[in-house]
């Protein structure tokens, strides 16, 4: 994420738009997280959050509702963080 405040604001907007998904459940999990928590994450956690956003909607929902474990076990931490902010 760029140091320029203008750039970082745009990056945030871009990220917020990527959290607009096909399911209400995902909107309600992701949008407040980006709004309130994302900026406080470590760089590594930010990367993990971006990796989550690459998931297809159905798979993402199953992982965030703990009905399925992500293939990459390193994402479990960020999943817990998203869950804890709803």
């Amino acid at each position: 994420m760029g140091a320029n405040p203008e750039t970082s604001e745009r990056d945030k907007a871009r990220l917020q738009w990527r959290c607009r998904r096909g399911m209400l459940e995902l909107d309600l999990l992701l949008e407040p997280f980006v709004e309130n928590v994302y900026d406080k994450l470590s760089e590594e956690e930010k990367q993990q959050f971006h990796a989550l956003l690459d998931f297809q909607d159905q798979e993402l929902l199953e992982c965030l509702m703990l009905q399925k474990k992500p293939e990459d076990g390193r994402l479990n931490g960020i999943i817990s963080k998203v869950r804890s902010t709803v």
């Binding site: 607009r20 096909g22 399911m23």
Partner: peptide, 11 residues
């Protein structure tokens, strides 16, 4: 307006 596979049909 969003990536096509994020359309509401998925729900």
């Amino acid at each position: 307006k969003v990536f096509p596979t994020r359309s509401h049909t998925v729900a």
